[in-house]
Design a protein around this nucleic acid. Structure first.
Length: 458
RNA sequence: GUGGCUGUAGCUCAGUAGGUUAGAGCAUCAGAUUGUGGUUCUGAGGGUCGUGGGUUCGAGUCCCAUUAGCCACCCCA
């Protein structure tokens, strides 16, 4: 029998203790800031009904949803004709009722509608859980990754938008990352589409101009041409997208152009108000109004936000926006919400490449008791209990290995103190305590050991 | 879904114009007089060279297929 090679699905990862410690550092900062802003945690299941997810992320999104094959005799429910059709989308809908969650926003919308009678609005929740996408993995792209979402639902006040700017600023400051927050507004993009005479082509226009930075203006124009926009429209659009200057001057110029366009002017007014509110509080991050920011997720209706690391090329590490009617699809109309999502895994990757993690943030025992034999072991165990009662992490080496081996174990696991007690120590009711960093060794009574560990900041 | 690159020990890689028993470093384990680690020294285990076919007297090396991983596009955290 050939042995099975160990492995995990591509795009997924194992995390060792050091990586966990570092990831936990990111999660705890994000959690701390969310809670400081009054958000409260919820959790939802890893899997949702497939129907809950389908159609919420656009055509591309549907394809990237991980489906879960039904249990039992699922083929019996499928006709021969359906099998023969070989239509993946149709078939999967017949043999899969469930799917892994693709993001946290749609499950949250479902949660809100389902529990609307227990929720008082506006509702501020946060959620830190993994999501899954059947994407082809590459740098900064995983098939399983953790999103850290915060949303306010049931309030259309722009204070929320400003609040999220604040949160983003605080999270990245606390992690020591330099970032640029970019903000735009879907209403401005709608106004722009209208302005160039293609009000119905907003989706195409936005996804095209989103690529300006990547492929350049010329390529974007080519793409728009291919999509059926005429020359005049594109020529009209060009100078707008290249508007130079500060946030204020860009907004000024834009409001001149979009005069009389209701959606556009409203978008401009919204951005201005958000910027004004943000200006009241001090922020570290760059906050730029960027007309070319056009996030694809099709449920955004107002503000759209994206954050990028300044010192490392990486996709967006945080994104979000306002959605006016996400709960509508589940039957709760007229509830506006806004939320953001931190991509913990990308933040981790950025911090690794910048070397921002402290050297040894791991959690390990502070003391190892060397195990000389049954009597010596039983002599030490009560002291270990006492130490733990005082909050000192400690452990007894299992089994009676050579002392050399036991010390090696302490060394490799970064355990700073080793407790040794054999014949001699037991006779005089003492313990030998070795400091692994200095090599220094003291012989002390139990109380002395406890004091020493307390002094070392256990 | 489309394209490019790669696949030799647990890990990182060497491997020369195809030629004998495929190497190194790290890691692991064991020893250097039996209660003292991190340094050093010695030794050991571990590979059907991703898989399948082909060319050849002979293939880790050349050709084809297949598979896995990485990178880019698409889209996104």
């Amino acid at each position: 029998m050939p042995k099975e090679k160990p492995g995990i699905p591509k795009g997924t990862r194992d995390f060792n203790p050091l990586e966990i410690a570092r990831r936990e550092m990111i999660f705890s900062q994000i959690r701390r800031v969310f809670e400081l802003h009054g958000f409260r945690p919820i959790e939802t299941p890893a899997m949702e009904n497939l129907s809950t997810l389908m159609g919420k992320y656009g055509e591309e999104g549907d394809r990237l949803i991980f489906r879960i094959l039904n249990s039992g005799d699922f083929p019996a429910r499928v006709s021969d004709e359906e099998w023969q059709s070989r239509d993946a989308a149709r078939l999967s809908a017949r043999i899969c009722d469930k799917a892994l969650r693709y993001d946290l926003t749609v499950p949250f919308a479902r949660f809100v509608v389902q529990h609307q009678h227990q929720i008082s609005f506006p509702f501020r929740r946060y959620q830190i859980q993994p999501v899954w996408r059947a994407d082809r993995p590459q740098k900064g792209r995983y098939r399983e990754f953790v999103q850290c979402d915060a949303d306010v639902i049931g309030s259309d006040s722009l204070v929320n938008e400003a609040g999220f700017m604040q949160i983003i600023d605080e999270v990245f400051s606390s992690l020591g990352l330099n970032v640029e927050i970019r903000i735009n507004n879907r209403k401005i993009l709608a106004g722009l589409a209208d302005y160039i005479g293609h009000p119905d082509r907003m989706e195409i226009i936005t996804t095209a101009i989103d690529k300006i930075e990547k492929i350049g203006m010329d390529e974007v124009c080519n793409e728009l041409l291919e999509q059926g926009l005429n020359h005049d429209a594109i020529e009209k659009l060009k100078p707008v997208l290249l508007l130079p200057g500060t946030n204020a001057s860009k907004l000024e110029a834009l409001s001149g152009l979009l005069q009389g366009n209701q959606a556009g002017m409203q978008g401009i007014a919204e951005i201005r108000e958000v910027l004004d509110i943000v200006a009241v509080t001090p922020t570290d991050c760059e906050l730029t109004f960027d007309l070319t920011l056009a996030r694809g997720l099709n449920y955004y209706t107002g503000a759209i936000i994206e954050v990028r690391a300044l010192d490392v090329p990486m996709g967006s590490i945080c994104g979000g926006g306002r959605y006016d009617n996400l709960t509508g699809i589940f039957g709760l109309e007229g509830v506006s919400g806004i939320g953001i999502s931190f991509g913990a895994d990308r933040i981790y990757d950025v911090m690794i490449s910048l070397g921002l993690f402290p050297d040894a943030p791991g959690i390990y025992s502070q003391l190892l008791a060397v195990n000389f034999g049954p009597r010596e072991r039983d002599y030490c165990l009560p002291l270990l209990s006492q130490l733990r009662a005082g909050g000192v992490r400690c452990e007894m080496y299992p089994g009676f290995a050579k002392v050399k081996k036991q010390l090696q174990y302490a060394d490799k696991n970064g355990i700073p103190f080793v407790l040794m007690a054999g014949e001699e120590e037991m006779k005089s009711q003492l313990y030998s305590l070795k400091n692994m960093q200095s090599g220094e060794q003291k012989t002390l009574p139990a109380s002395g050991v406890i004091e020493e560990l307390a002094r070392e900041g256990g």
